Amino acid sequence: MSIPLAAKAQSVKLQTIVVKIGTSSLTQTDNQLALSVLARLVETLSHLQRQGHRVILVSSGAVGVGCVRLGLRERPKSIEQKQAVAAVGQGRLMRIYDDLFTVLNQPIAQVLLTRSDLIQRSRYVNSYHTFRQLFKLNVIPIVNENDTVAVDELKFGDNDTLSALVASLVGADWLFLLTDVDRLYSADPRANPDAEPITWVQHLGDLNIDVGDRGSAWGTGGMITKLEAARIATNSGIRMAITNGQAPDNILKILTGEPLGTQFAPQPKPNNARKRWIANGLRPSGRLYLDPGAVQAIGQDGKSLLPAGIAMIEGTFQSQDAVVLCDLNGQEIARGLVNYNHHELQQIRGRRSSEISMILGYDGADTVVHRDNLVLNPDSLSPKLNLVAEDDEAR
């Protein structure tokens, strides 16, 4: 499907742009840094900054650079090894970026994040203010996951997801994923010569593709993580593009309307930053399955979720944790902050709000999820995304 004319004709305005580059684009076959690619990337981002755009770079490579520095031939597998190697590589990677950006008189800043920085509301807001101040100082933030201290349950897992969450955090206009393929295909073109290119995605729910099984030997992502990034970004009202990391100047061409790579149309976004945080910053702790009446009340009538509409509960969660709201077939309808823990909800599900105090022995909220703490899934009325992954072990 080709990019619509209306999308091609966009004028270039001052925008917030997040660019993610993966390890496979940053390194050569011998795992040494691809300095020519890095130089072109730095030139492109500095040019955007001089035009007045606000630019954030999400860069992989700390573990890969650390492996080269230490003479390791394989990527470490245990989290302790990764943390140690990332500690070696991160400083070296930033030094290279700083040297290159300094040639163009462009200041940069290192920003290391863990999942908890986006889960806890106060840290999420503080991260937002940090980025805003860096923009005011004409600084390009270079973001990476804080591999040195992150633990499994607080890891993003890949920089595709991290970049989408950062884009959502700052309310970006664009997210560019620079990768080792030039666009999205109907199957992995490295394994399937009949794979068809996809240039435009209006709704993620319309896709039915085979995304292969893993990323590169030294990276942690694959096409699955890029489509998850697209879900986060487009649901936050952000336009996203996947394009070849060997040609960073494709970013400039895409911004002027050239139909390069695969571009994803932004969907109607949550109307405030708090709802973007609920939709994307939080990791859901459970799932609530709703009867058809509750699905309609939430999805079409814009109402809060009442206990009477809950048919089944899955997971262990506390009050104010994030949960996914599903129909009886398991299709996601919305996400929200729940007012009761899972034990309490098991007791009051299917009952009227007027019965809550009698059942629990105290006066609780009339709603299970208030509409102010609820974010609809824009694809809830579209076909579900069908992702085929034979083996996700690499991630």
Rank of each mutant, 00 (worst) to 15 (best):
I3Q: 05
S11V: 13
V12Q: 08
V12P: 02
L14G: 05
I17H: 04
L26R: 03
L26I: 05
Q28V: 10
D30S: 14
A34L: 11
L35G: 05
L41D: 04
L41A: 08
T44A: 09
L45C: 08
S46P: 11
S46M: 08
H53D: 09
V55Y: 02
V58S: 05
G61T: 04
A62C: 14
V63H: 02
V68P: 00
V68L: 08
V68M: 07
V68H: 06
I79Q: 14
E80M: 13
E80N: 12
Q81V: 09
Q81D: 14
Q90W: 04
G91Q: 01
M94P: 06
D99S: 12
T102Y: 15
T102A: 15
L104Q: 15
N105H: 15
Q120T: 10
Q120H: 13
S122E: 15
R123H: 12
Y124K: 01
H129R: 14
Q133C: 09
L134M: 07
F135D: 13
K136A: 13
V139D: 02
I140L: 09
I140N: 01
N144K: 00
N146E: 05
D147L: 11
V151F: 11
V151K: 14
E153W: 03
E153K: 10
L154R: 10
F156I: 01
V166E: 01
S168M: 09
G171M: 02
A172Q: 01
W174Q: 05
L175Q: 03
L175Y: 05
D182T: 13
R183L: 07
P189D: 10
R190Q: 11
R190W: 08
N192Q: 13
A195H: 06
I198P: 03
T199K: 10
L204A: 09
L204D: 07
L204T: 09
V211C: 04
T220V: 12
G221S: 15
T225D: 08
K226C: 12
L227G: 02
A230I: 00
A230F: 01
A233R: 01
T234I: 02
N235W: 00
I238Q: 03
I238L: 07
L252I: 11
K253L: 12
L260E: 10
A265K: 03
P266L: 11
Q267H: 03
N272D: 07
K275Y: 01
K275W: 03
S285R: 15
G286S: 12
Y289A: 03
P292Y: 08
A294V: 04
Q296W: 05
D301P: 10
K303H: 14
S304T: 11
P307H: 07
I310R: 15
G315A: 14
G315E: 10
V323L: 06
V324T: 07
D327C: 09
D327K: 10
G330D: 01
Q331G: 02
A334K: 00
L337H: 00
Y340P: 04
N341F: 09
N341I: 04
H343Y: 11
Q347E: 15
R349S: 14
R352K: 15
S354F: 10
E355K: 06
I356H: 07
I356N: 04
M358H: 15
I359T: 07
L360P: 03
Y362V: 04
V369M: 07
R371M: 00
N373R: 05
V375N: 02
L376G: 01
N377D: 07
D379N: 12
D379H: 11
N386P: 05
A389N: 12
E390M: 13
E390Q: 13
E393R: 13
E393L: 12
